[in-house]
Design a protein around this nucleic acid. Structure first.
Lengths: 197, 197, 197, 197
DNA sequence: CATGAATGAGGCTTCATTCAT
DNA sequence: TATGAATGAAGCCTCATTCAT
């Protein structure tokens, strides 16, 4: 009897999961160029060739992870937008989910991938990724603008405020990854204060 | 020194200057792993082999630039520390010099190199670089601690505040490099407000 | 034989037939080295692994097909030899069967496989294949020699004439494969004239 | 003093010559897919990497050689066309230059490359190469047509005659390469007779 | 018998580094 | 000092083959 399709599918998903986690971890720590496929395979506990059953190239794996990270980020934002409550509540919720994300293993990897400055060298794809990064800033900018109307947010150019805040969160995630457990994340209020009076 | 020798020396310095600027630019934009020597030589307008007269390896050039960047950063801090004036004045001066630095071509490259997350893979050297990065945070932490005593700085863990602030400045520099002229840097007050009441 | 077994046997034969046709087609079009097993499986509409139930290696499949092609060629020749009639009639019949073969899909593939210049790299096997190719030339040479005695064939070294004729037929088959339907095969008389006065 | 440009240029030309001859030889004998870069380098007596200073890929080297072969063939034809004399004389000259070409080492390699059935897999380039092959047939077709008008050439469809003749020459070259010194090329008259009464 | 996931050797290509001039 | 040709180790990727189901 041929192996059941479902069985194969499960195997596939399991393998893909292992590849993704390994890729995420290494790309986050070393960047695309300095991470090699052999390492990813080893980290994933599979053979090098198997990666190519699921991804056509190292770059494709990277882009797939980067896009997934962007999506997760966008979804998180969408959720916040949908919530009722004051702007302060929304930002508070945003920071909570950020801090929680950074505490979890794959959460921080996704976070770092988003903030990665060095991309693939493929101009078109890099362009897309950069635009998506900008999107996160634009999303927050809208929220800040509203908060300024309600008087909850601090004065100043909303775009600049957004850039500053996002920059801070990314840098903090980066330090967290660099120094690991010994690095204590900033308190929520400290971050909130950047945007809220 | 005979005139001949002096001329040679000048040429040497000029060549080194070209190599450094080219390396800085490319390392900042693409990272160590993705930058190749041929490109650096082309950007510097010299032959590939000539780089090896002045540096023993790509990594050595990178480390030399990274260390120089750290030194510049440290010197800037030392200067601030030596200045008389309130903590607010000192931080204000610090932000001014940061913003001025980021506006200049090689300034931003040095800045980015400092904040680069992916290092050489050479554990010992990477350790040293990371410690120096931590030094910048520690420097600022001291200043914040003083400012809290004088009542100028906001409340909160000084280390966390320092990390947040440094993170913000690095992320902003990164966005500036990414988006170039079209990216407007945040106003000084916006940054100052993170630390000062 | 019990009915079950017979059915299995039929399935086997059917599968083998599909593999052979797919292999033939692809080897003919792209050669041994450039054809891969996955493609053959896809063309045959079966799974990759199944090929290995019937053949131990890609090379074995290729050799099996090549040898079969040689056999078919030899059989065609034997048939001609057995026939009664003038040399001209025999050559005429030979050309007919060549032209008919080239018109049919698998016929042309077998034909191309025979004429394939690039072999397996396995010296012993390649040696054998080349000897078999030479056999076709030798076969025709004998016929020409006879024809020269009866005065039907043109003058000239029989071996050289044979090589020239066989070469022409192979090249024509090659062009036919390359250009497909749009390529009109030469008239029989045109080919016959190479050997017959 | 920097190495003189001319000196470098000479080195380059010399190396390219070695690469081309080695590539030609191996591609002719084994085809593109079965020839590997390491072998070419070894045959050329240089390092593997050096090939990539001059060609971007194995395929590019192959295409460069194939196109050069086509050009040589076209040039040979142009020369014949320019000559005064009867069609028979022209064809005679053509066959002479073919036979001479096939006798020389690199001559036969160029000849085989032209007739190679398996191409790069790059559809666009393969299309171009096939069109150029057809060109040779068209060239000869024109000559045959003229010859039929003057009554020198045999009757029959000129295109079919051309295909048959070109096919024969290619097949013969292939046998010559396969069997080497021991293979005696057909006499000129034997080939001439295919086209001339 | 049939499937396709998994392996890893081997091929293509890149690029840091060396070296003759 | 300056050049860029040359080397070869190492990385990316392919694909023949194996194997669990």
């Amino acid at each position: 009897m041929p192996k059941q399709k479902e069985q194969f599918n499960e195997m596939r998903l399991h393998t893909i999961q292992k590849i993704k986690l390994a890729g995420l971890k290494l790309f986050a720590k070393k960047g695309l160029a300095a991470t090699n496929i052999k390492e990813i395979a080893k980290e994933a506990g599979i053979s090098l060739g198997l990666i190519y059953h699921y991804y056509n190239s190292k770059e494709e794996l990277y882009l797939s992870l980067a896009n997934e990270a962007m999506e997760k980020s966008q979804n998180a934002f969408d959720e916040i937008t949908r919530q009722s409550g004051s702007i302060k509540d929304k930002l508070s919720f945003f920071i909570d989910s950020y801090l929680n994300g950074v505490k979890k293993e794959d959460g921080i990897y996704y976070f770092i991938i988003i903030s990665q400055p060095y991309l693939t060298g493929n101009e078109e794809e890099d362009q897309k990724l950069n635009e998506k990064k900008m999107l996160a800033i634009k999303n927050l900018e809208v929220l800040i603008r509203e908060g300024q109307k309600t008087g909850e947010c601090v004065h100043g150019d909303p775009f600049q405020l957004s850039v500053t805040f996002i920059s801070a969160t990314q840098g903090i995630a980066s330090f967290k990854l660099m120094f690991g457990e010994s690095f204590v994340l900033p308190e929520k209020d400290l971050l909130l204060r950047i945007l809220i009076k």
